[in-house]
Design a protein around this nucleic acid. Structure first.
Lengths: 131, 131
DNA sequence: ACAGTCACTCTCCTTTTGGTGCGTATAAAT
DNA sequence: ATTTATACGCACCAAAAGGAGAGTGACTGT
């Protein structure tokens, strides 16, 4: 992922790592994962239904699924209180917070360049939508 | 996307931009988009079938679709030579290259932290796979 | 005359994704 | 006694994603 000449980088990028990275990026890019990451960053510790409300429009199924995945990868920690009715608290781990920070770059890039993208889209539409 | 207290950020993150960013991240995170981005970064200008070979395992349908999308957003430029058999060259635009650069942060993060993630997964498996 | 090349497009078909709604346990509140 | 609240799990179903493979158009080399 460097220059067009492709000489200075060994090019042997360990396929296992590559696979993992792709998986992680794909997962984070997921609509719900990213939203939950944001919500937890902003609010700190939250319970299941609170996250659901704050992300807005997520089904319980997806909420459970996404949180489980994030827990599995060590991005969130899950604390269960043995009370009734059940109480479960979720919060970001240090790893989760660092992940969120890493993606800030992308957000910044997008904020800086979104005008260019929109312009490109209009352009494309004009050249291909009508011709 | 900052601190848990959520006070220092206006929190009014323009939903339109948010939507766009999500779309872009989602798209880039896409398996094929990311691969093609890498391939074009490494090799510079390439033709359709060359990209197909270098990405490995992509169907023509997906290749066309992904390239079109990237062209639409202004990440790649498409140059058609009116010859027969057809010849089409693809290369990254400046916007495309900057996008790739923005994602480098994420790659670096993943490279630095993937051990933690794998450890977390093993942990999770042990605690939940058997219990 | 005929096969080969290239950059596609189009039509199926299978797999994956994700939403809806229902069920559950149990204590506290009415 | 019945309702309410919470954090799920499960089964079912519709929609979307994506792969396989055939078709196309026009020239070039044999």
């Amino acid at each position: 992922m460097r220059s067009p000449s492709g000489r200075e980088i060994p090019d042997e990028i360990d396929p296992v790592l590559e696979e993992l990275v792709r998986g992680i990026i794909g997962q984070v890019a997921d609509k719900w994962t990213m939203l939950i990451l944001e919500v937890l960053e902003e609010h700190g510790t939250l319970r299941f239904t609170q996250i659901g409300k704050l992300t807005g429009g997520i089904s319980q199924k997806m909420l459970t699924q996404t949180l489980r995945q994030m827990e599995r990868d060590g991005f969130v920690s899950r604390k269960v209180y043995p009370v009734i009715p059940p109480k479960v608290e979720y919060s970001l781990t240090e790893l989760g917070r660092s992940l969120s920070a890493a993606f800030c770059t992308v957000w910044e890039w997008a904020a800086a360049r979104h005008a260019d993208i929109e312009a490109a889209r209009k352009d494309f539409e004009e050249r291909n939508g009508k011709a």
